[in-house]
Design a protein around this nucleic acid. Structure first.
Lengths: 285, 285
DNA sequence: ATAATTTGCGTAAGTTTACTACAATATTAG
DNA sequence: CTAATATTGTAGTAAACTTACGCAAATTAT
């Protein structure tokens, strides 16, 4: 539960405030940053009111007192500046669109972090551990996510593959059975082909895991769904944040599997890492 | 210019602190949120040190005093980074490793946001705009990044392709020339095959853009390098953060290209988006 | 219109909190 | 082992914050 930005709250409450409270609000809003650094006395003087008035003002906005209020204000400022204007404007230049895009990705990740169901993650790790075979399916942008997943999970010494060909997916889904895990990745969860494939796999007793939007047709079809609600506002014309979120969730799952495998498994990962050494130029140092 | 996160600063400084300062740091890092709400006395007691020690601790980190320190700490917390101990412990369970991994990704992105050279980004956008053809090259995990880039850039109505086959890359590199852009993605920048391919392309007068580690052999080979220094501590056994960073940077570049193309270009993107509609189940609402 | 009641605001006193100067202790180097 | 330096704590002081109380203004009822 994210608390609403304090500055907005104060602005909204402005009409319902009485005289001295309005004075205090004006001063704070005119320079919130300065407010966080001044003492109650300085602020009272600036607003031409008494110190207790400032204190009462703070309490009105659900703060324990003045210091607590300053703290909350500071937090609002820190998060506010970054998150307010997420959208890229047509006349932005590099220096503004670059941080905007990165910040919006960060923001989305922070949201997922707070909302993701740990129980579900755990359950999916269970299923992946128990799998005899894992297929990662995805189309379009999710195709490369699937491929990345393959690259990650083959390290667990399991038969893993990724597919972005619908016909291939259909065929594999229809020949699968108990012990097979179909890991279906889709941003919208509404692509017909993908939903159908999930249905076929499910019908044959395979486990179907969905990394997709909640309450989507695909989600309904899956044994377990890791649902991700990514606000669409950033993905104006191409999937951006959702892709990243999917990849990070796959990182989480891979970590989960590694931890379950226990320390005996680490040498195996080490071996894979070392296998690449001869392909590289040595680091000078 | 974004200021570095206080929590990270403290974590980094940890080894260089003396006894009582370390105690204070431990208490703060173990529960930063609680720290922002406690008085200097409470904190001193928790850390088993005297109040002035806490005060000195604050000053060491460029705060005017304890209250100012709390303010800065609060701001750091607000920016979305919570877990300090970024590394996953072998005995972590879902509820701890999930946020840890996400936070470490967030952290890395925040670092990139602050460090990335806008001039370079701009330059790369220039090159991409001018390109007659774009090839995205990557191996292993970077292979799927390259593919994702293809999926993004084909929308600009340019001949774009991605390749993760070394022989294919070699052949294409040797047949390229002026006007061709080879966009080479590599986490380490030290994979011999990749560096050689870059060399070949460069020799033929093509533009070679590197999305890779600074000061690496690959970086030396490129016309322009977007260098990304991702701390390795998270990528214990598989590339994690670097991949994400590469993708986000490609998002930034795609945005840059879109903006340069101007508003006349938006209908084209819209058309691509709409082309997918018939493949989807309609949203019930 | 005036009395009663509520609401708003400030004064002053009390309490907590934070800072400074200095002293004691520990640590290191010679 | 002693001197120098760095580190930590004690005590006092200043400041910042809160509370209690009371007056004044505004509102409402008579």
């Amino acid at each position: 539960m994210h608390s609403q930005n304090l500055i907005n709250v104060i602005t909204d409450a402005l009409p319902s405030l009485n005289k001295s409270e309005t004075k205090v609000a004006r001063v704070i809003l005119s320079d919130p940053d300065a407010a966080t650094q001044s003492s109650i006395a300085t602020l009272a003087k600036k607003a031409q009111v008494s110190e207790p008035s400032v204190n009462r003002f703070c309490k009105r906005f659900n703060a324990a007192g003045f210091p607590d209020f300053k703290l909350k204000l500071a937090k609002s400022l820190a998060s506010g500046i970054r998150f307010v204007n997420r959208n890229v404007d047509p006349d932005d230049d590099v220096t503004s669109y670059t941080p905007k895009i990165i910040d919006s990705t960060i923001n989305t990740l922070a949201m997922v972090r707070d909302k993701i169901s740990h129980a579900r993650v755990n359950l999916v790790v269970d299923k992946l551990i128990q799998a005899k075979r894992i297929y990662f399916f995805g189309l379009g942008a999710s195709g490369s996510v699937a491929r990345d997943a393959e690259n990650k999970f083959f390290r667990f010494n399991l038969p893993v593959s990724s597919h972005d060909d619908v016909l291939m997916q259909r065929m594999l889904a229809s020949t699968g059975g108990t012990g097979d895990v179909f890991f279906v990745i889709s941003h919208t969860g509404r692509t017909k082909e993908v939903v159908e494939v999930a249905e076929i796999a499910r019908g044959n007793g395979s486990t179907v895991i969905g990394l997709t939007a909640a309450d989507s047709p695909l989600a309904d079809m899956c044994t377990v769904t890791l649902d991700v609600d990514v606000p669409e506002n950033t993905d104006e014309y191409m999937p951006m944040a959702s892709r990243i979120v999917h990849l990070v969730i796959l990182d989480v799952l891979a970590t989960g599997v590694t931890l379950r495998r226990g320390p005996d498994f680490l040498p195996h990962l080490e071996k894979i890492k070392n296998s690449l050494k001869p392909t590289r130029y040595r680091a000078e140092s």
